[in-house]
Amino acid sequence: MEKIIVCIKPVPDPLAWDRLAMDPVTKTLIREGIPSVINPLDKQALEAALEIKDACGAEVVLLAMAPVSTRPVLRQALAMGADRAVLLSDHWFAGSDTLATSRILATAIERLAPFDLICCGNFTLDGSTAQVPSQVAELLGIPNIMHVSAMEFRPPGPLLVTQKIEPGLVILEAEFPLLLSFTKEANKPRYSSFLEILAAETREIAVWTNAYLQLGAGLIGLGGSPTQMADLLIRRKVRQGLRLEGSPEEIARLLADKISQLGIV
């Protein structure tokens, strides 16, 4: 095993989502003041890569497309045991849909080639389309498996991958190179020690712009995205907040009425 690439997306911390606001003119989300964290499932992806590294040695490279201000997020991932990190950052990348995002990631991965395995999370917390993994694999011309809930690799044996389906599981035998995207059942991400966190503080993070990737304007950002966002609504449903009072029997009748109105009983 030579190289494993782990795709990490910094996402706004969900603990601060109530502070999410929308710019009424540009219809974009205002993320200012909301700190970033590692997309939770990307920790599962990283843990899977580190387990292979521990077992048979490999270079683990982190790859993220995000603003340079998210460097601390990558340092957290470095502290878990990754070898180096590449941050793809350029205003030309802004507004990319999943196809344009995948083109950018796939092109960067080609610059990092040769590689054996690419690990992704199964979906993100913010966009949560779950479309990037299959699209990156397609653009690289390698197979991929989503919904991975377990992985077993004992060289010289084959790579065995468990995939969740509805209903049940499928066991697949796969060959490298390959892209896998992991669910939360796949493993328990390791914690980093204080010393590891401290050591990661000073690690270099390479920043690549489009000057290095050389993708045409028609392939990336808003101009390279086949989908367009026509509208964006923050859904704060106005709830009735009706308080039902009385004896438990009275409350039961009132609630049963409400349920009947929905046509359920």
Binding site: L125, S128, M229, D231, L233, I234, R235
Partner: peptide
Amino acid sequence: GWGGGVVATI
């Protein structure tokens, strides 16, 4: 998106 907190029209 955002756990159902926003709805985008694409």
